[in-house]
Amino acid sequence: MRLEGRRIFKGKATGEVLYTEEDISFYGGCDPETGEIVEKNHPLQGQSVAGKVLVFPTGKGSTVGSYVLYALKKAGKAPLAIINRATDPVIAVGCIISEIPAVDKIDIEKLRTGQRVEVDADNGVVTILD
């Protein structure tokens, strides 16, 4: 299946989906050294975003969150790609400065944790491979 959206930041990636219906605040909500979601009661609490195609509705919280994505990239713990329903400025800026492929305006309910997907951010397209 092919889902069409909009490019936020260019690049291509293929990998496994980590999905949540809850918004993510990277500042304070994600450990910048390990990639683990640490926000209390978040559905992804205890799971790492490292090396995943991270799918969530939108970002929330402080603009310092952009730098947390940058820290994850430097630590080798960044998501492979980010897919949103509507990307907010904190996530958009974070993806640009850390060069993480990102798309939004995607019907994210079609995705679920564990699926393999190909993200072609240049064209704003996500393809479900299995």
């Binding site: 910048p32 603009t63 310092v64 730098y67 947390v68 940058y70 820290a71 430097k74």
Partner: peptide, 13 residues
């Protein structure tokens, strides 16, 4: 985004 307390090493980088 100037305090090292908020920026951390990654922000500085």
């Amino acid at each position: 985004g100037v305090s090292y307390h908020n920026l951390g090493e990654a922000g500085l980088e």
